[in-house]
Design a protein around this nucleic acid. Structure first.
Length: 275
DNA sequence: GTACGGCCCTGTTAGC
DNA sequence: TGCTAACAGGGCCGTA
């Protein structure tokens, strides 16, 4: 499931292939989650950026939109989404939710479970995407220090993992990297409060987990492929996520699993005691 | 404003 | 073997 490292991997691959190219006519799934993709037709790609798990594709068009000559094509990959430049027409693939012709190729958004999302909006106007509009700072944001992070976590009494998955304290962390970071920091994900020192460790662990994910081209458990259609390599480096019932790599105790906020959560009862 | 539960969606897996 | 139910989960929305 694409989180920040997977989206960043795709962004880096697609940026040189899309920048300056014009998106031609294509097709869209009728769901409102994808149908506005047609608004990008006729536009030229100016840049590819990323906010959290959202890919933000800058567009400009000679014939302006209702709001002006520039727009953002927002792509969220959901759980099973992929965005690729393909040579072959995607007509026969039932899981393609949107595509745009590009000269002799096509930009193709494929998403089996339809948890993904596409939107064309005025630049910076993300009202149609509430989570993006209220997104917390990027993990690399220099203004996000331990103090800021700790104060953000202190504002709520929800489980710490729920807060991290909300994308508010920091952007881009999903279930996999959250489990990895909580384990690395020795913080119990079900805790509802955290000390300043432990918040600092958790923030550092989140940054390290995401950095490692990017270095390995993302994590592929089942569906994720990058813009080349290749699987990521980070899954062999996971130390906690998906290892319930197996021994902790740090202390040897058996890792446990429970549901937090309807997300399967794996943790070590010895390394990550409740506080 | 915050917390929480339910829903969307479909391939895979477990259980009978 | 074949069927059914449970499961996976990011984001959104309605309700309390």
């Amino acid at each position: 499931m694409p989180e920040l490292p997977e989206v960043e991997t795709i962004r880096r691959q697609l940026a040189p292939r899309l920048t300056g190219r014009t998106l031609g006519p294509g097709a869209q799934h009728p769901s409102p989650k994808f149908s506005t993709a047609s608004l990008a037709e006729g536009a030229t790609v100016t840049e590819l950026t990323r906010r959290g798990k959202y890919l933000v594709i800058g567009l400009e068009r000679a014939q302006p939109w209702a709001w002006g000559p520039d727009a953002h094509l927002i792509v969220h990959l959901g759980m099973t989404g992929s965005l690729r430049v393909r040579d072959d027409p995607p007509d026969s693939d039932p899981y393609v939710r949107a595509w745009w012709a590009m000269d002799d190729a096509a930009l193709v958004f494929r998403d089996v479970r339809r948890f993904g999302r596409i939107a064309v909006v005025p630049p910076g106007n993300y009202a149609a995407l509430p989570t993006l509009a209220a997104l917390g700072p990027e993990p690399t944001d220099a203004t996000l220090d331990a103090e800021v992070f700790w104060r953000s976590l202190r504002r709520s009494r929800r489980a710490l993992k729920t807060q991290i998955l909300s994308q508010r304290p920091v952007a881009g962390v999903g279930n996999i990297y959250a489990d990895e970071a909580f384990w690395a920091a020795g913080v119990n994900p079900a805790d509802r409060s955290i000390s300043r020192d432990r918040a600092a460790r958790l923030l550092e662990a989140i940054r390290e987990a995401l950095h490692q994910g990017i270095q390995h081209g993302g994590t592929t458990l089942r569906d994720y492929v990058d813009a080349d259609g290749d699987r990521g390599a980070n899954q062999v480096h996971l130390l906690c996520y998906g290892r319930a019932g197996q021994p902790c790599r740090r202390c040897g105790d058996v890792l446990r699993s429970r549901s937090i906020d309807a997300r399967t959560t794996t943790w070590c009862p010895t390394c990550q005691p409740r506080r």
